[in-house]
Amino acid sequence: MTASTAVGTAAIRTEGLSKRYGRDRLAVDGLDLTVPAGSVFGFLGPNGSGKTTTIRMLLGLIRPTGGTVTLLDGPMPRAVGQVLPRVGALIEGPAHYGFLTGRQNLDRLDAADPTSDPRTRNARVDAALAKVGLTAVAGRKARAYSLGMKQRLGIASALLRPRDLLVLDEPTNGLDPQGMREIRTLIRGLAADGTTVFLSSHLLDEIEQVCTDVAVMSHGRLITQGTVESLRAGTRARLLVTTPDAGAAVVVLRRLGATDVVGTDDGVEADPPALEPDEICAALVRADIRVRSFTLARPSLEDAFVALTGEGFDVTD
């Protein structure tokens, strides 16, 4: 842990951040977001919920129509030149010059950073290529790269220098399962070194695996933010008992204080009473109920997410 993870510092802080397109389309509406330094922060939301606009405002690409952004203690977009060298970013997928090689692409982006040292450029480019496993194809033109290789090259550009903050928008998009694992391992490793990671993804199990904190956006507003645990705690666990003696089990569970008890094909399911799980199980067994399996199903982040943003499939506006 480095000092940058000290309690109270925020890697990203927005206050009343808003973006209005035209007269009345509010893409982002009064966002108050706080990303603690040293966290791996999951940024969730359905398509069209304003995530991308928010990320672009954080990085000074889009000018907010209201509110403020503070990135690593620098006001954006005013402090772009001072702050962004310490930020690596992958925004809405990678973009490259097809007629340049992978190495030339990284060389150009590094040269674009006025604070990067040209004497160490080649070494840093090679190191970044190695980190994402592209060394073997570094001399090939980016046009000939597969989707996954382009994605890796995009991530490599975010890793050209040691960064204090990484903003990664859908980093595992287009990667094969091995690639996804590698990138997750990479993110965990960077986070362990004290880099704050701001991760936007649709893959909820991915967020669940790597993130410590989450924020959920919907319709341009922030619905909730907090630790992954606190978000999950919002939805209650469900008790699942597999047994051939369903009728008797229903009676016992009701007597213990369980609510919403329903019989299923192979047993019973209920909202658990306020008892320890082992006590419930013991009570069932004492009543001569043949318990084949006994599960307290913890709600997934996906359940929590759907509970917050609704089941609707249509793109919102």
Binding site: R56, L59, G60, L61, V80, G81, L84, P85, V87, A89, I91, E92, G93, P94, A95, H96, Y97, L109, D110, A112, D113, P114, S157
Partner: peptide, 14 residues
Amino acid sequence: HGGTLRYLLVAPAG
């Protein structure tokens, strides 16, 4: 058009 402008500006090229 190619999307490289956003990466140059985030680099930050200024």
